[in-house]
């Protein structure tokens, strides 16, 4: 099994559906410890990405259109999120997808490439946000996701790696609840941020779950 641009497009479209479905939950989490716009921002950003994907699909049906790569879909996602999200998650997810696109710009997306894609995404988020694990940010979902994908890749295929990453991101997000925030808007609350799940960690878990769902029913 190889992952192609159709998978990447299904991934992004499912993420858009997920953030619309969970908008109120994300906004509520952010309202508790941030500025309350995370759900709205991601809905606006991913809706804009879906509109771009629709437009690109129409172009691709024209004769002579070049074949698409996973990296093309991820780059379009990156630049659109950076332009439309509005909050810090725009440049953070935007940089994640931009770096991920750089390692997926070829047709052979195997298990090793999937691990490299997740690592590159985490590197991008860390470069931009300068957060470290344990500071109650999306890094607390991404870091265990990358570790789990690396472990799973030793014995399994790309689907195993993605499933392991999604499960670890979900657990990592839940594990942010008792943490005291020291980065991002929630850090202004200090001790009062404990007891609340980090909204960026939760949206990371949704994003990676969508990557698994996009594998298709026979593989998920």
């Amino acid at each position: 099994m190889t992952l192609d641009a159709d998978w990447a497009e299904r991934w992004i479209r499912r993420t858009a559906d997920a953030v619309v479905d969970r908008r109120d939950e994300l906004t509520e989490l952010d309202r508790e410890i941030g500025d309350g716009d995370h759900g709205e921002n991601l809905v606006r950003g991913f809706r804009a990405v879906v509109a771009k994907l629709d437009a690109r699909r129409a172009e691709a049906e024209e004769p002579g259109a070049s074949p698409r790569l996973v990296g093309d879909v991820l780059k379009l996602t990156a630049t659109t999120l950076m332009s439309t999200v509005g909050g810090a998650s725009g440049p953070l997810y935007g940089t994640a997808f931009l770096r991920a696109a750089k390692v997926t710009g070829h047709p052979e997306i195997d298990t090793r490439t999937i691990v490299a894609m997740l690592e590159s995404a985490l590197d991008g988020i860390t470069a931009r946000g300068k957060a470290e694990p344990g500071e109650k940010t999306m890094v607390d979902a991404w870091t265990p996701a990358v570790d789990a994908a690396e472990r799973a890749a030793g014995e399994g295929d790309e689907a195993d790696a993605l499933r392991a990453a999604a499960a670890a991101a979900d657990a990592g997000s839940t594990a942010t609840i008792p943490l005291v925030a020291t980065k991002g808007r929630a850090s202004y609350l200090g001790e009062r941020s404990a007891g609340h799940e980090d909204p960026g960690a939760r949206s990371t878990a949704l994003l990676l779950a969508a990557a698994v769902e996009a594998l298709g029913e026979e593989n998920a």
Binding site: A88, G90, P91, G94, L98, R128
Partner: peptide
């Protein structure tokens, strides 16, 4: 100013 302004410049 705050968070995403600097992140957007860096992007």
């Amino acid at each position: 100013d705050l968070g995403s302004s600097a992140l957007t410049v860096e992007s």
